[in-house]
Each structure stands twice: as C-alpha cells, then as structure tokens.
Design a protein around this nucleic acid. Structure first.
Lengths: 199, 199
DNA sequence: GTCTATACCGTGATAGAC
DNA sequence: GTCTATCACGGTATAGAC
C-alpha cells in the first residue's frame, strides 16, 4: 500500500502520473500545500450540496405529511447516505477522497486548518435539524452526540479493514451500506438517550 | 503546531532533542520505522493491563452481587476510563500517546500494521463481555457497534479541537471526562438498539 | 561496543534558461 | 509556458575514532 497522507506522496510521483514535469505542479498550483488544499476542496462542494439536498428533501417530505420535521433517523440518513452514493459511482477517486476526509478530520494538524471552513456551515444546519427533532435537548449534549457520530463516520471512511480482521471476515470495511445500516440506528438511539435523559 | 504523524518529525529533530548524534537512533533502533513501532508498543501493554483490570474488576463485582455479568455501561466504562487516568497523571507523554493511537487506528496504512497484534486480543475479551450483556445479539451487529465505539473514541483521542469551534467553546476536545460522560450512555444505547432490534 | 562524521540519493522549492 | 540546475534538508549506511 502507498505511504499515508500528505507526506506519503511526492510531487515527483504526481507529476510522473500526470506525464508532466515536476516543476509544472509548482507553476500551476504553487506550493505542495496549495495543491493538497485544491485537491481537498474540489469535491467538497459537491458532497455538501448532495447532503444539503438530502436534508431539505426529507424536511419537505415531513412538512407535506404535516409533521413538525423529519425523524432523527431521516436526518442522520441524509447526513450519511450521500457519501455512499459518491462511492457507488464506481469512481475510485471518490473512495480515495472519503479516505482523505477521514485523514484530515482525525488530524489535530489538518483538521482545524481544513475541515471547519468547508463543512461547519452545513454541519450547523444538520445540528439545528437534530435539535428540532429533540426538543429541549441541551446544546452541549447535541454537540457531543454529533462528535460521536462524526467519529464513527470518520473511522468508517478511513477503510482500515480493522473490522475485517476483528470479525474474522464477518464484517467488511468496504461495505459502506452495512456500516450505515448499523450506524443510523446506533447513532439515533445514542442521541435519544443522551439528549433525553439530561434535559 | 508540529507537522503531523510519522513524517512530521525527523530523526534529526529527535536526536537533537535527545542531545545525541543522528546516527545513534539508527544504531540503537534500526530504521525510523522500527523506532516508531518501539515508541508505539512501549505504552500499549500498560494501557491494556489497566483496561483488563477494570473489566475484571467490574466482572468480579457483578459476580459478588449475584448478577450474570456487568452492565453494558460498566463494560464500556472499563474500556474508556483507563485512558482518562493515563491523561490525569499530568504526563504530557500520555496525551501525545493517545493522539498517536488516534493517528494509527484511523489510518488504512498504519492501522492494519500496528493495531491488531497489540489490541485485538483484549478487544475480543471486551466484545465477549458485551455479548454476554446482550444475550442473543448477532455477532456482526456486535462488531459493527464496536466499530462505532472505536470511531467515537478515536476522534476523541485525536484532540482536534473541532468540537471547540463547532460549539463556540461550549465543549472542549481536551475535556476527556465530558467526552466519556457523553460517550458511555450514547454507545450503550446504540448497542442496545442495534443488537436488540435484530436478534 | 558506542559514538561521530560524513557521504549518498530523493525530497520540495526556486531561479533562470529556452 | 516549460524545463534544467541548484539548494537545503530528509532517511540511511558506513568508515573510522575512542
């Protein structure tokens, strides 16, 4: 397997793969860091739009049905499933991109630098929806619950195959659908427990 | 902040900090990779023993009380709290070590190479205890639930300060106690929901 | 056995040739 | 716009001092 992360790939490898000279990367993108950020930001907008659409869709459906808002499960599903669709296109670029999100979200170095300004606005919208589905919940409880959701998601996106070993092949990291099928009820129950018991 | 991960620190930095020549690292530890693994393995045994003790203690208490076994919450607490104690010693080495666990556990490159042989035996013991507390649960559900727990824990250990930003300072990454106080009921409810609804 | 000094090649970055 | 040359610094191996 390829070495990990930012330092794991060299500009010369990238240039060779692209069939161009090394110095061209610097000419067109500036520093290696700028190229890295450009790569990360390129697909983020698409992903966020897919998630936003999914959230608004289930909110609209709830409104049509005369409900106050979507259920917890529907909101969490809107947060997770678009990531699955991105993978299902068969584009290996998306699989690598999801692993890149995991790498960045879990890093005390890259996380603060690259996650917040790209994803926090949408995350706040999701948290607002969750708050509406959990009336009376304390704000700090909502944030800690989101933290747990984000962590479970991040480990899933990282595709470490750890669960493959642990389960003797019964579960597979690559099976995003199974991961989400288990994550959605798990997380929803967690939100209900924490946000209900403390209000 | 220091550059991240394996490539973020150079042998020359380490040697300078230790007040020795660069080549001494190679002489005593071999490759940089070997030094990295030595650093990671050194504290793992201590951590595992603390967790194992905590599990056996709550199992013994349950037996004395005439119960079949500890509750879900007690098992999860035994899995998490020892990590908090390691931090409370005030030793910054432990804080960095926990972040290192997060870095490795979440990496498709380092994870398979370094997590399984150090932690899986103990994890299997915990999963067996969880299975006993959730009679009739399907094995794959138990593994996926553990996966969610592991992800939430990993993001916590990474100390990314993301929740600090997101919550406007209401929650703090550094507050491991608050993290576990929210994680334990969250995860326990998740296990119950997933493992009960499918059996 | 321990340790120092040094050399080798690959890295990101940049100045300047074309 | 594109490529060459060069630089400081990275991990690593080794010759030789003590």
């Amino acid at each position: 397997m390829q070495n990990p992360g930012y330092d794991g790939v060299t500009l010369r490898q990238i240039a060779r793969r692209a069939g161009v000279d090394v110095a061209l990367a610097s000419y067109h993108f500036g520093k290696k860091l700028d190229l890295f950020q450009a790569v990360f930001e390129r697909r983020a907008a698409f992903l966020n739009q897919a998630r936003r659409d999914a959230l608004h869709r289930c909110q609209a459906e709830a409104a049509e049905a005369g409900k106050a808002g979507p259920t917890l499960e529907q909101i969490i599903e809107a947060f997770l499933r678009p990531l699955e669709l991105a993978q299902e296109t068969g584009d290996t670029g998306w699989r690598h991109y999801l692993a890149l999100i995991a790498y960045i979200n879990n890093s005390p170095y890259w996380g603060p630098k690259m996650m917040s300004h790209l994803f926090d606005e949408l995350v706040q919208e999701f948290i607002a929806a969750l708050a509406k589905a959990l009336p009376g919940a304390r704000r700090e409880d909502l944030y800690w619950c989101y933290h747990n959701l984000s962590g479970a998601l991040t480990l899933t996106l990282a595709q470490t195959k750890r669960i493959d070993n642990l389960s003797g092949g019964l579960c597979r990291s690559a099976d995003l659908q199974a991961a989400y099928d288990h994550m959605i009820p798990f997380v929803a129950a967690g939100f209900r427990e924490v946000c209900a018991s403390r209000r």
